[in-house]
Design a protein around this nucleic acid. Structure first.
Lengths: 109, 109
DNA sequence: TTATTTTAATGTAATATTGCGATATTACAT
DNA sequence: ATGTAATATCGCAATATTACATTAAAATAA
């Protein structure tokens, strides 16, 4: 078939999967790492840095953007990307809670 | 093209992507949640619980197993799955470090 | 042995993802 | 208006993923 049956799972499971999907490609991980390094950076810079073409880089940026974790600020024709700290913290909490909950279940046994 | 260019990224970026890939499907998140609930459970039980066919469930279990986070113990014909607490802790650390590092970079700005 | 139960493997179909070239769009400068 | 630079979008080819039916294998029970 090939299509994920989202509707049969809990909202929480889908939520975690959605966030994990952002990080499930090394290019996107590298992009996030790089954006952290520079104080607002351009698509072209990111593209050069991670050594993927501009269209590919732009596409990955859109994927990350969809989750609301990316902010972008226009300065003329250029667009400076940065990470939304508040949203980033939320994702961290979501993940960490999942890891902790699973761990605490194990401790009971 | 369609194939991820792993080789152009850092080992760390690939590592994070590999772990995230496990959690990037809600069925696998649900499986991990359920395995936490029961003290060792069968493939068939998991399949019933998450409402996916036995082959599909088995396949997802293999994907999770590849990362070493799943333990399985045979008792006769049945195979009881459980989560390796030590490995689970390692994955949590990997993720949390990544989130923290990215966050700390933001704080500098 | 044979039957049953449980899990894994195989084959197949549908869909999603990845990456790029070509092109479009956007914003500014001249 | 025209040129230039930075991004985004489109369309494609290659590959990966998802899900299931069927079949095989392994272990036990009868």
């Amino acid at each position: 078939m090939g299509v994920t049956k989202r509707h049969i799972h809990s909202m929480r499971a889908n939520q975690i999967a959605d966030v994990a999907k952002i990080l499930s490609n090394p290019a996107r991980v590298a992009i996030i790492e790089y954006i952290g390094d520079c104080d607002g950076c351009l698509c072209q810079d990111i593209s050069d840095k991670i050594r993927l073409s501009q269209p590919t880089t732009s596409q990955h940026l859109q994927v990350i953007k969809r989750t609301g974790v990316l902010k972008s600020q226009f300065k003329g024709k250029a667009q400076y990307y940065s990470i939304d700290a508040r949203k980033w913290g939320q994702l961290q909490t979501l993940f960490n809670d999942f890891f902790e909950l699973t761990k605490s279940k194990m401790a009971d046994k």
